[in-house]
Amino acid sequence: MRFIFLLPLLIFGLLAGITGFALFSTLSGTRQVEQLPSVLVERPAPDTRQPNLTEGAPEVDLSHYRGQIVLVNFFASWCVPCRAEIPMLQSLAKDLTVIGIAYKDKVQDTKAFLTRFGNPYHVVGVDLDGRTGITWGVYGIPETYLIDAQGNVLFRHAGVVDKVLIENTLRPLWETAG
């Protein structure tokens, strides 16, 4: 009988535990609300054939890059954080094939953007209507996908790629995969 009177305390304890844990992991940075887990991870990357940003150049076809470790980066000229990660992508381009997908962006805007901020991409595909983005589960750019030599998605990051992410997450991943 007395147990019934403990029940409210137990429920409150559970609730306080959950919220407290969530609060502290938010503060320590381990919980990032904006990071939705991607269902693509450990699955083959979607078939992607996009028109090339450079007119007349052949289509950007992801399957051509089988056998290499590829970084697919969704970006746009209207996306402010996308600017910040360009030097980082440039540094990654030494080790990986970095493919850009211009997401819902006018071709001339993308070109002006790449002239102003520099072009770190091996090749840039154009996704004018954002449909390719949807098949990849893109919900907010910049988003970056690491794809292994077999064409499977190893990792997805929503948000700016920074040094910490490269050194702590991306590098170990591609080094074990390659």
Partner: peptide, 8 residues
């Protein structure tokens, strides 16, 4: 470029 040191 909003004070960002760009590639150029």
């Amino acid at each position: 470029a909003d004070e960002q040191i760009t590639l150029p």
